[in-house]
């Protein structure tokens, strides 16, 4: 579904990614882990076209999508959950959803994401700025689902949330996985990510330092300590 071949990227003159290669197969949940500043967010931004790729290529669904514009990639079937959620404060909860619904029709509709996250249905008339962190996260996930994506890019879906909400979000992500979703998941909370993922990559200073089965990493405290410092 997705293949990165040695991509390099950065901001201005500063290089952040030094040749990242990774692959996500159809129906797979792949975790992308790494310490602060390792380049996880930059990798996702490069895939969706928000940060230009300098070298290397991004292949999605058999097509080279390197340097394509973000909105065309969204319409091609990449759903993106930005770091810090990106809920639009000027739009109500419902408007945040109608903005996206219908751009790529499919099984996910507003009615269905309200079923997945009943809290959002209760707060549909609230402004995006009035939501709690957990509700914002649910809204951002719901919005990405409404694109009926072939591939979901999730950047820290539990960042800054209370443990109870983290568990709820992960339960919903497990539902989404059970429906056969293909996901590239960036996470700080290694334990949750590895409980959901099939495989994992660990980034360090803009390069892949470790890759393998999620279960192998989950069971290997030594490896976690070396690569993730946990």
């Amino acid at each position: 579904m997705l293949r990165l071949e040695g991509i390099t990227a950065g901001y201005g003159e500063t290089q952040v990614l030094h040749g990242v290669s990774l692959e996500v197969a159809v129906g797979e949940v792949v975790a992308l882990l790494g310490r602060n500043g390792a380049g996880k967010t930059t990798t996702l931004r490069s895939i969706i076209g928000l940060t230009p790729v300098w070298n290397g290529s991004v292949v999605f669904d058999g097509q080279d999508i390197t340097r394509r514009k973000p909105h065309t990639l969204a319409l091609a079937g990449i759903g993106y959950l930005p770091e810090h959620r990106g809920v639009f404060p000027s739009l109500s909860v419902h408007e945040n959803l109608t903005l996206v619904e219908g751009r790529r029709p499919g099984a996910w509709t507003i009615a269905r994401v309200y079923e997945l996250f009943p809290r959002l249905a209760e707060r549909r008339q609230n402004g995006g700025a009035q939501l709690s962190g957990g509700e914002q996260q649910m809204l951002a996930i719901a919005r990405a689902l409404l694109l009926n994506p072939k591939l979901l890019l999730l950047d820290e879906p539990t960042e800054g949330l209370a443990p109870l909400i983290v568990r709820e979000i992960y339960a919903r992500l497990a539902d989404i996985k059970a429906e056969g979703a293909t996901v590239l998941l960036v996470e700080q909370s290694v334990r949750f990510a590895l409980s959901l993922a099939d495989r994992a990559y660990v980034l360090g200073r803009g390069q892949v330092e470790w890759q393998g089965d999620a279960a192998a990493l989950a069971g290997d405290a030594e490896a976690q300590k070396t690569w993730l410092g946990v």
């Binding site: 993106y80 739009l91 694109l147």
Partner: peptide, 11 residues
């Protein structure tokens, strides 16, 4: 509000 996120959602 956020042009990048809007673009990434297909706008």
């Amino acid at each position: 509000d956020d042009a990048e996120t809007a673009a990434a959602l297909g706008v």
